[in-house]
């Protein structure tokens, strides 16, 4: 029983990261209708940024989070402005797809060139601290990370729901032409959304460094899980992405616990295909 509870909690804490990644992907996909295939690499960039900041300036990884968010936002804005916006005009989905794939290659191999393939960690005084809650042991860094990402999710949800900019973003995602007609600068919104998306991925990376190793391909598995979260949680839905991420984290740990850890990827991918097809069938049936 205590193993089961422990697995539940671990799944929940990991699922939080999938949620955060999924939300970033969701904002980008919702607004520009492009799949950001370098989302996992953005997480990896966030991890290395945290590493550089904390080793050169001696900052605590969690204090780096706002800095990483700002830097990643700028990176995303620059990428959107110089690469993606010009290619949006060609209306070629193939090109946009391989643009992000190429960016992913660029970022992961750039990290390999700059930092080598060694696994790195950021040692902190509290990285081995555990808190006991009844039968369950909680690693302190995981708990802090989870708390921070809950706060970020709520802030993002409120931002999109209540602020003027958030409403503009939602308007562009529903109807870009209509949004332009009523005077919204869609190019600016595109830059903003891509910036927010990459910043969320970067923050997820920064929060991960507390208990995860840093290496150039660290983001790959998170990148694809973010896509699963978007599809399962529904387009444009922040709460949907949140719960889908948690579900994914729990599914993974449950498969690892009851079947075998080596099957968890297999089951996750098959579940994804099944959910995708069933969802589409339901949509067709409704029509």
């Amino acid at each position: 029983m205590s193993i089961f509870l422990q697995a539940c909690v671990n799944g929940l804490l990991m699922g939080g990261f999938y949620s955060l990644m999924g939300m970033g992907q969701n904002v980008i996909f919702g607004v520009m209708k492009i799949v950001n295939f370098c989302h996992g690499e953005m997480l990896m960039v966030g991890m290395y940024l945290t590493y550089v900041l904390s080793t050169t300036f001696g900052l605590d990884p969690y204090l780096c989070v706002p800095l990483v968010a700002i830097l990643m936002f700028c990176l995303g804005a620059v990428i959107q402005h110089t690469l993606i916006t010009p290619s949006l005009g060609t209306k070629s989905f193939t090109n946009l797809l391989f643009l992000t794939v190429g960016l992913g290659l660029l970022l992961s191999n750039g990290a390999l060139v700059l930092f080598g393939s060694e696994y790195r960690t950021i040692p902190t005084t509290y990285s081995q601290t555990y808190i006991s809650l009844g039968p369950v042991n909680l690693a302190l860094p995981r708990l802090i990370s989870f708390g921070v990402l809950i706060v970020i999710s709520v802030v993002l949800f409120a931002f999109l729901k209540y602020t003027k900019t958030g409403k503009q973003i939602r308007a562009v995602s529903q109807n870009p032409v209509g949004a332009e007609v009523v005077g919204i600068n869609t190019k600016r919104i595109y830059i903003l959304t891509y910036g927010i998306g990459t910043a969320l991925a970067g923050v997820a990376g920064a929060l991960l460094t507390g208990f995860y190793t840093i290496f150039p391909t660290a983001g790959a598995s998170f990148g694809f899980r973010a896509l699963i979260v978007v599809v399962v949680g529904g387009l444009g839905s922040i709460p949907g992405a949140f719960f889908a991420g948690i579900f994914l984290g729990l599914l993974e740990t449950m498969v690892a616990l009851f079947i075998s850890p080596s099957y968890s990827d297999l089951i996750v991918f098959i579940t994804f295909i099944v959910i995708l097809v069933v969802r589409q069938l339901i949509i067709i049936r409704r029509k």
Binding site: F29, F224, V231, L276, V277
Partner: peptide, 23 residues
């Protein structure tokens, strides 16, 4: 069954299929 999916969904299924097969 996957061809009722259009656009990016097909790409996602093809990735998931490839990874599932490898696993």
């Amino acid at each position: 069954p996957c061809f009722i999916l259009r656009g990016p969904y097909f790409t996602l299924v093809s990735i998931a299929f490839g990874e599932a097969l490898r696993q």
